[in-house]
Nucleic acid binder design. Structure first.
Length: 503
RNA sequence: GACCGCUUAGCUCAGCUGGUAGAGCAACUGACUUUUAAUCAGUAGGCCAAGGGUUCAAAUCCCUUAGCGGUCACCA
């Protein structure tokens, strides 16, 4: 009975109580039997979900002669290998390994299988007397020997850092993580479907840009060796897409892709994020409001089967029409302050101060309005709301409002207190655009790291002539968060940005 | 970037006002055999994030560093 002490300092005998070494040991035993632990191919007849659906009607205790071949990762082993749960991407199926249907050699092989291994199994379909659909196994085959012990099968993988750094482990173990990322994929596809159906064409414009523009943001800088030139990773594709409208490539173009912003990281911000931007000739911002709410509503309905969803404690109703109100009216509604009634920046700063919003001396009227909105109103925009008519001061690429020179024809869409979309009638007057760029350059020289650069070629493009055009952008990560009830943006990104480990 | 918090076995977590480390799962040995987190008996597994200090004595108190999380700031 004396247990052989594996702790003895014998270099040649592995410590079999160490999960990792036990797996290596089983790998060796497989090799000694002449079994390839990583064979190239296994022909499956069904995925787990297909089997579950096909044999849904099988009675408890009923056996069939239908032969199936399934494959998947071992998630649980019960009764010394008699019952094995296999998981594939579609779901789970139990395989039943009994001496009545397997020879001794086949049964012995089971001892070399661990939780985490990928195996294939062949057998006949049955439902156990207790009601579990099972493959009555005649043979199994090792498809991939796993050398990593999997996280606890019940408690799962809770350590957030490991979940993001080793997403593969998170996915193997946490169904919720798999569901979230699958839903993300669907959302992106549904958006594409919608855009394609309306006749828009999808394009790809450079991530590497020599001139930073299209949004107020701090960029990443990188270097191309052969050109000996610095490039910015784009903060937005805006200026490239408008050039395509100018060229008449299509009346509607869109791009789904990554933007990069060298700013803080938070539960709502990842340094690289995915957006859709689209431009439509002969649209103004009213047309875009209709478009955005129809598109988002359509996507929500395709994902959830209804336009009403729950996020945390909030019930959100995407049914149209969405609330539309001007930024200044919303500020008045929530704070009582009327910024349309004040003319100068000084008066605006003083007005903001009465509600405890403190602004720098040099702030202009528009910056004050935007700041007051962000601090006092944004979080209250739970139901989908188009916040219209933003200040011109903070909108260098939008067309001045047809009725008010201090405002632009722009709206931001808020849902659940988050900015989800941003849209405007595009500024297409080359002379005014040139002035706006000059103002940006001035702000940049004054120390604003987010100011845009002069883009002479873009002005030249406008001189060729941009038809009246509406453009919009939407943060896809945030939309996915909303539709998957995720409170952290990292949960909807396969590999969120983390600080590299330095050891 | 600032403040607060977390880091204990492969995984999930206990560990009291300081007294020298525990459980469940996973692993290993055996029993049992139509299970559903199978069960039963046993075995092994730890520089308590890293470094420094206080103390007779530190997982526990203090300092530094790292990673992560939360809040705020900037932003989508």
């Amino acid at each position: 009975m004396a247990q052989e002490k594996n702790t003895a300092k014998d270099e040649n005998s592995p410590d079999l109580t160490d999960p990792r070494q036990a797996k290596e040991h089983k790998l060796q035993l497989l090799l000694e039997k002449g079994i390839n632990p990583y064979p190239p191919k296994f022909d499956r007849s069904h995925q787990a979900a297909e089997i579950q659906a096909k044999y849904e009607g099988l009675e408890n205790g009923e056996e069939t002669k239908d032969v199936v071949r399934v494959a998947g990762r071992i998630m649980a082993i019960r009764n010394n290998g008699m019952f094995i749960d296999l998981m594939d991407a579609s779901g789970k199926v139990q395989i039943f390994c009994h001496k009545d249907s397997m020879d001794e050699e086949a049964l012995d092989l089971l001892k070399l299988y661990d939780i985490g291994d990928v195996i294939g199994a062949e057998g006949t379909m049955r439902r156990t007397p207790r009601g579990e659909l099972s493959v009555r196994c005649t043979s199994t085959v090792m498809l991939t020997k796993s050398l990593m012990p999997l996280p606890d099968k019940h408690a799962g993988l809770a350590d957030v850092e490991t979940r993001y750094r080793q997403r593969y482990l998170d996915l193997v173990v946490n169904e919720e993580s798999r569901e979230t990322l699958r839903t993300r994929s669907k959302i992106v596809r549904f958006i594409r479907d919608y855009m394609d159906d309306m006749g828009a064409i999808e394009v790809e414009t450079p991530n590497l840009q020599a001139i930073m523009g299209g949004a107020s943001a701090k960029p990443f800088v990188t270097h191309h060796n052969a050109l000996d030139s610095n490039f910015y990773l784009r903060v937005a594709p805006e200026l490239a897409l408008k050039r395509l409208i100018i060229g008449g490539l299509s009346d509607s173009v869109y791009e789904i892709g990554r933007c990069f912003r060298n700013e803080g990281i938070s539960i709502k911000h990842n340094p690289e994020f995915t957006s859709i931007e689209a431009y439509h000739a002969y649209y103004d911002y009213y047309d875009l409001m209709d478009l955005v709410e129809d598109l988002v509503g359509t996507v929500v309905e395709r994902v959830h089967g209804t336009k009403k969803i729950t996020f945390g404690k909030n019930e959100i109703d995407f049914g149209t029409p969405w609330k539309r109100a001007t930024m200044c009216d919303l500020i008045k509604e929530h704070t009582g302050l009327d910024f349309m009634a004040v003319e100068t920046a000084e008066d605006a700063i003083a007005l903001a101060k009465t509600k405890g919003v403190h602004m720098d001396e040099g702030s202009n009227w528009g910056q004050v309005v935007a700041e007051v909105f962000d601090e006092r109103c944004e979080a209250k925009m739970i139901q989908p709301t188009h916040v219209m008519d933003l200040p011109l001061d903070i909108s260098p690429l939008a067309k001045v409002h047809r009725d008010n020179p201090r405002l632009v024809e722009r709206f931001e869409t808020y849902i659940n207190g988050w900015e989800i979309a941003n849209a405007f009638s595009e500024l297409n007057d080359p002379k005014i655009q040139h002035q706006r760029f000059e103002e940006q350059v001035k702000q940049g020289e004054a120390g604003d790291e987010e100011a845009q650069m002069m883009d002479d070629d873009f002005v030249t493009a406008l001189e060729v002539g941009l038809p009246p055009t509406g453009g919009w952008g939407m943060g896809i990560d945030r939309l996915v968060m909303l539709l998957t009830n995720s409170s952290n943006i990292r949960d909807v990104i396969c590999f969120p940005t983390l600080k590299p480990k330095n050891d």
